[in-house]
Amino acid sequence: MIPTPNLSHLTSKDFERVYEPAEDTFLLLDALENDAEDLKNSRPSICLEIGSGSGCVSAFIGTILGRSALYLCTDINTYACQCTVATGRQNKVCLESVSTYLDRSLHTRLKHCVDLLVFNPPYVPTDSVEVESAQTSPAIASAWAGGVNGMELTNAFLKLVPELLAPQGRFYLVAVKENNIPNILATMLNEHNLAGKVVLQRRAGREHLHILRFEKQASQVQT
């Protein structure tokens, strides 16, 4: 049992500005924990989390993998970046936080270098205007407002994934039923040549949460 990261340094005031870990976060932690041995054996050297928020997920990954990997975290919300760093410190994991949109400014240098890629995107269906305003003046809504089908940010990122992943890299994505999961899997396979599957799912209130895992190596074997 890998302990959930200690977030006692963050207060309710922080969670007015940064997404507070909830069922979706915990389901992602469970999926990572299930794969912990595999992840350790694959000896990742670069991990990248897009939209790290409180830093809970990357701190958890750091607890699994220890001090033999670099933990890069991005968030469009600069306040979230500060929380990410603080959570790293609290849990004795060094998290490198960069305030940016998705993987911008890192993409060029990280091509085919990312061993472990994680994205818990804003997946809640909203109208497009809402996602645009959330992303241009980032506040708490940037953590959940997902636009049409909850997929606007996810779609923008999915096309970047094949280029980011190292030859044996893995990518974990959080999604809900409304995101049309069969369609995500088909698009990734057909357009981006990345095979994936649902590794965990759980109902939490109104949300039917899924964790998708994509593997570059598995895709290459199949093609």
Binding site: T78, C81, V85, S97, V98, T100, Y101, R104
Partner: peptide
Amino acid sequence: NGIPNMLL
């Protein structure tokens, strides 16, 4: 505060 702001 040690955080690079790469937002455009």
